[in-house]
């Protein structure tokens, strides 16, 4: 059955599986049923069952992956829309984002190193808090495994979305701005969608956290990594 590994067939399959996963998530409302995660599991199973090589799938995959870079560039539009908010509270935002970013990189690297992870894995974890396309780019730049980063980032997002509000309640973070910001900073798009569930105001600050931490992480990760090496 050579047709099962046809490039366009596997493209169509990827679209269909992702669309179905989206429907599944919105019907059930369960945030851990992340469409990326579910689609990847189904496609991996498909490849294994039909004994199709990953290189074969990547023939189709590269057409999809190609759009990652322009999609990151497109984030410039929401960034532009938030510029006036950013300017109004520039210092508190920058200081808390800078702290969150640096502490995030250092803590994940030191804990992973302490628990005996290999250097390749440690480098893949450094950018785990930020949105996947940025995180993968950072991982590529510092020499980790981009697809490991992709998986970790999704899991971090799901965990942050589920546990975020409880953690903040326990640590007495009460202001809506701080809560939204923290969720976006620690758990990127999934934290942002969780914040969006509460209110638009939370959501706006969460997407601000996502954007600023994305930029800081891209700018600072190589430097922070070389400092704690």
């Amino acid at each position: 059955m050579e047709f099962l590994s046809n490039t366009y067939f596997m493209l169509a399959l990827t679209f269909a599986v992702y669309a179905a996963s989206q429907i599944l998530q919105s019907r059930t409302g369960w945030s851990f049923l992340n469409p990326i995660l579910i689609s990847a599991i189904i496609i991996i199973a498909y490849l294994k069952v039909n004994d199709i090589d990953i290189d074969n799938y990547n023939e189709s995959g590269r057409y999809i992956e190609f759009w990652l870079k322009p999609a990151i560039v497109a984030l410039g539009v929401p960034l532009y829309k938030q510029l006036s908010t950013i300017r109004k509270q520039l210092l508190p935002l920058l200081i808390s984002e800078l702290a969150g970013c640096v502490v995030g990189i250092i803590s994940v690297v030191l804990i992973a190193r302490f628990l005996g992870a290999t250097q390749e894995v440690i480098l893949s974890l450094a950018a785990k808090s930020v949105t996947t396309p940025i995180a993968m780019e950072v991982t590529k730049t510092v020499g980790g495994i981009p697809s490991l980063t992709a998986a970790v980032v999704i899991c971090v997002g799901i965990f942050g979305g589920l546990a975020g509000f409880r953690v903040m309640r326990m640590s007495h973070i009460g202001s809506p701005i701080a809560q939204g910001l923290s969720l976006g900073t620690a758990a990127h798009a999934l934290g942002t969608s969780r914040a969006m569930d509460v209110s638009d105001k939370y959501g706006a600050f969460a997407s601000l956290g996502l954007t600023i931490n994305g930029i800081f992480t891209a700018l600072l990760t190589p430097t922070v990594l070389s400092l704690i090496d």
């Binding site: 990326i36 496609i43 799938y57 995959g61 759009w67 999609a71 981009p146 992709a150």
Partner: peptide
């Protein structure tokens, strides 16, 4: 943009 990184997750 979630869709665009399905191939990376498959890898």
């Amino acid at each position: 943009f979630g869709f665009f990184f399905v191939p990376a997750a498959v890898s």
